[in-house]
Design a protein around this nucleic acid. Sequence first.
RNA 1: GCGCCGGUGGUAGAGCGGUCAAUUACGACGCGCUGUAGACGCGUUGCCUUCGGGCUACGGGGGUUCGAAUCCCUCCCGGCGCA
Length: 381
Amino acid sequence: MTSFGFKILKRSKKSRARLGVISTPHGEIETPAFVPVATNATVRMLDSTEIAALGSQVLICNTYHLHLAPGGKLIKKAGGLHAFMHWNKPLMTDSGGFQVYSLGFGTDHGIGKVLKTPTGKTIERDAQPVNVRITDEGVHFRSPIDGTALFLGPKESIRIQEALGADIIFAFDECPSPVATKAYMRESLEKTHRWAKQCLEARRSKLSALYGIVQGGKHRDLREESARLIGALPFEGFAVGGEYGYDKPTMGKLMGWVSDILPEEKPRHALGIGHPEDFAALAKSGMDTFDCIAPTHYARRGVAFTSRGRLDMRAKRHLTEHKALDQTCACDVCGTYSRSYISHLVRKNELTGLKLLTMHNLHYFNALAAHLRAKIKNGQL
RNA sequence: GCGCCGGUGGUAGAGCGGUCAAUUACGACGCGCUGUAGACGCGUUGCCUUCGGGCUACGGGGGUUCGAAUCCCUCCCGGCGCA
């Protein structure tokens, strides 16, 4: 069994981009890599064999959700997450830090972590979400499904993640809201930093590589401070979380500033960013892996990502188009089925339609990442 | 032929004298979604509009009433029962 490692094969002369390989006990990840999201130990609509066939190298599952059901203990008894879901390639688990936001202020304000239009809302220092209580020690959750109470702090998150046994696990952080004031951000950041150290102390095994998380919102000073502090801790890799400003250029710049501070020889993961138009910016700002729900989430809403942009397959016009979803795509779905057929399935709420879109989108995202690697290799990025 | 029940917007199906252009669901159309609570959420869905409102509508016709999708008469159509 190989242990964790990261090798940089090539550094771009034009940007911070690098071509690399992450080694894990369950195999290698060629980077930059896109990481599909498998929250409940499944990429929705697909089984593990199908996921692998679409070119996915690594998945990210969720500590909060898997702890609620079926529970870390059960999964451990099943032989760990890999055996449980029959996925023998690399796995990551998110720490539950995102749920601090998504089930907290995110739900309260009805917004995601990327804000395109101002909401007029702000979160002042010491404010608390409705269904989540954030304390210095950790976070008290209440499941939106059945009200189950769950406390997650750095120690709890690490315990659960070690029981799940992913190859890469993440420190427990607070993902702050994009509408938080800087005063709130400052305090949140200090919490995240304390928790990062506590996560390192809580580790019992080195079977899983532990990534520290840089926060700081859209504030350059906070981001840099966070990168210096987290980057100096003995994590095997690093992640950047939270929001990165309203526009893409800002995101690229902020990511780049963080990259410049983080230790160069360790891998970097961008948490929850990765629409197709973000890929190049992520790689150029020095990110090695990044996960995003976009391909799977949008597929279940009937949207295909293609080389010519998003296609809403619910639109009637696709019903009469007998060509492939994306004529330049090499995936089985595009090689087999027509837009017309897929549109028909989606419009009739047939799950097969959503499945086909999930497959295509995942292939598309994975191919996009492969293309990125090729460009770095050829000195084009 | 007699008796009973029923005919409402794209569909199903509420309403049963004013607050009804008509609840609701589905459908249709549009918008949103970036470490997934969510095969989801939001909006529009008779026609016209200077956005104040105006017009035409609840099988057809006629009546009662200040006022009818709602009550009465009649015709047409459907279901059930008896001949």
